[in-house]
Design a protein around this nucleic acid. Structure first.
Lengths: 340, 340
DNA sequence: AATAATTACGAAAACGGTTTCGTGTTAATA
DNA sequence: TATTAACACGAAACCGTTTTCGTAATTATT
């Protein structure tokens, strides 16, 4: 058991002052070569490493960034997180993570906890409850205190900060037009009931594409699924009661659920019904047939978000550069659940 | 922009000493009710919160725990992580995460980084490379410095510390015997080439179960897949060249890959060939037929690991309690890829 | 030889808290 | 009335760094 060694220890052993040790280790020219050599050798031998906490206190920056995501089991967030971690690490930052679990309270409490010195900035995607309540005072307060925030994916106009989002509307249009190009006419949308900005945008895209292509909108072809319930019956009814030849799903789970039920009903995918789902995760990759998906490039989003944050933090705290919004272009990964 | 307020600020405004403010806010009886009320009111109004970094420095504990996992996209680790986060948070700890990406160097560098004061203890699962190299000096050094470590899932005998593992061998036996009970005789194993302790244990269980049930072992029925390559062809060959009526896969991806290929070859699952895969994740849940799996109870593992760590850290740093190893019992989730 | 410049180092403050100990005022006791 | 106890507060040390500033000793300059 050999506890960590401090500057003070070195100073005592070598009979010099703490300042001398500090300077010597930083190769200051104030210190003679002889003394520097002695101190460095000693420090190396005892494997001296400066204490991060003391440095944080002194420098008033922790080199930690806080990441708050609604859920970590969701593949999309997981990839974004990886992007953040990757970039942050490469820049010498550590990542402290909090799962809000879609809960407003957890989001607030954890962020306030971390904000008291533990982190230099936040990257977050709003929890479902926060979006529903439309209450962002906690974020505003943090910004007020001078703590930078970057929002990604689930963002809000209420908060002025850097943002990284997907071109949800655009890619939805692209998806629907891909259906249309293969001859589909009765195109359905399966979406979530929660009032997420992303679901909204995707729906807008869906509607826009139909309109642009002179296909009349049929509200019956939009299935809004509740959160957390067993959806199977609803989906089953949906496909039984409607004539459908293509379906766009706002997430991967809905997509594979639809796939499975469509097949159970005796239809062929993609010949009878085509499917496209958001999120290009393992579910889609290993489904049979493999699903055509919207790749959200989560890792790229994460890297970009981290870059935004670190840029801002390291801009010498000085003049507030205008806030930027980066739009990541989703891409359609064409596989076997749509006709080529 | 209203920056955070400190004890010093309060002291100055209220014309008392810093010590008085500190004591008042801690409700010390040294301070008169009057003064306490004044100070508390002021602090509340300005939303005073003590600075975590200063506290960490003073108390020599950060209330942060470091989690090092090989990968975050893997469902199993993700659930363990959630368990850790949950328990840690409930005990007032934050979680700093590092992805080793199966790399020895990243594991070492990140841990050393964090060990310099940023965290009070580690929870980790060894990277593939670390296991291959069998080099654990970085862990030994940390333990030497008095930093507690808890290993989970991918552990090693070389390191004496608390551990949380799965009864891999036992559950493999159970899985194989479940195959046998449904009449299977030609039972295959699909495993990884890397020398993980877990794959080893699973193989041992597989062999033991066959032996116990007087089924002769056929090495041809053991498929060892390389990491990261496209396995499809190998799996295809495997099922073409061998008569097989049941297959145990050491992870979820192998299981769905096998499922898909088996179906392509025109066999019926589970009637012609049964499948059981390790990890009860979404892939298995949404496959058709739904896969029978080994549930590893990752969340429970995570909670237990966090409990081990926090218990040890909070045991007043005093006498070293003996190291414990908790074995989490995996359970077989019977679904539709095995005969009931 | 007297003065100026350089060298090599230490003292001390600062970051934001906690905590021990000391002390000047009152209030209680002898 | 003198002594003691209780009360209410402040000074200072400490956690481990960095950094500014001061200064003694040496070297260079005139």
């Amino acid at each position: 058991m050999k506890p960590k060694i401090t500057l003070k220890d070195i100073a005592r052993e070598l009979d010099v002052s703490i300042s001398t040790v500090s300077k010597a280790l930083k190769n200051s020219k104030e210190i003679s070569k002889d003394t520097k050599d002695r101190i460095k050798a000693f420090a190396k031998f005892y494997n001296y490493r400066p204490n991060n906490i003391a440095l944080s206190l002194k420098n008033r920056r922790t080199k930690n960034i806080g990441v708050v995501i609604p859920d970590i089991v969701h593949h999309f967030f997981t990839t974004v997180f990886r992007g953040i971690e990757k970039y942050a690490n490469s820049m010498g930052y550590n990542v402290i993570i909090c799962i809000s679990d879609e809960s407003f309270d957890k989001e607030v409490i954890n962020m306030e906890m971390l904000a008291n010195g533990s982190i230099d900035g936040f990257i977050l995607s709003l929890s479902a409850e926060t979006q529903r309540k439309n209450d962002f005072t906690h974020l505003k307060e943090l910004l007020d205190q001078g703590i930078p925030i970057v929002l990604f994916d689930r963002v809000t106009k209420e908060i002025a900060c850097d943002k990284v989002i997907l071109n949800d509307k655009g890619i939805s249009i692209e998806a629907v037009e891909h259906f249309i190009s293969t001859g589909a006419k009765k195109i359905a949308l399966v979406t979530t009931e929660n009032f997420f900005n992303v679901s909204e945008s995707r729906k807008e895209g869906y509607l826009k594409a139909l309109e642009d292509n002179h296909i009349s909108i049929n509200e019956d072809l939009i299935l809004t699924l509740p959160h957390d319930l067993d959806n199977s019956k609803l989906i089953m009814e949906f496909f039984k009661n409607n004539e459908i030849d293509a379906v766009l799903c706002v997430n991967e789970i809905f997509a594979v659920q639809c796939l499975s039920i469509i097949q159970q009903l005796g239809y062929n995918v993609p010949n009878d019904i085509s499917i496209i789902g958001f999120t290009d995760g393992i579910l889609s990759k290993y489904a049979s047939p493999k699903l055509t998906t919207v790749a959200q490039h989560g890792e790229r989003m994460g890297e970009k978000a981290a870059k935004f944050l670190i840029d801002r933090m390291e801009s010498l705290e000085m003049e507030e550069a205008p806030f930027k919004t980066e739009i990541i272009n989703a891409t359609l990964i064409k596989r076997d659940s749509t006709i080529n």
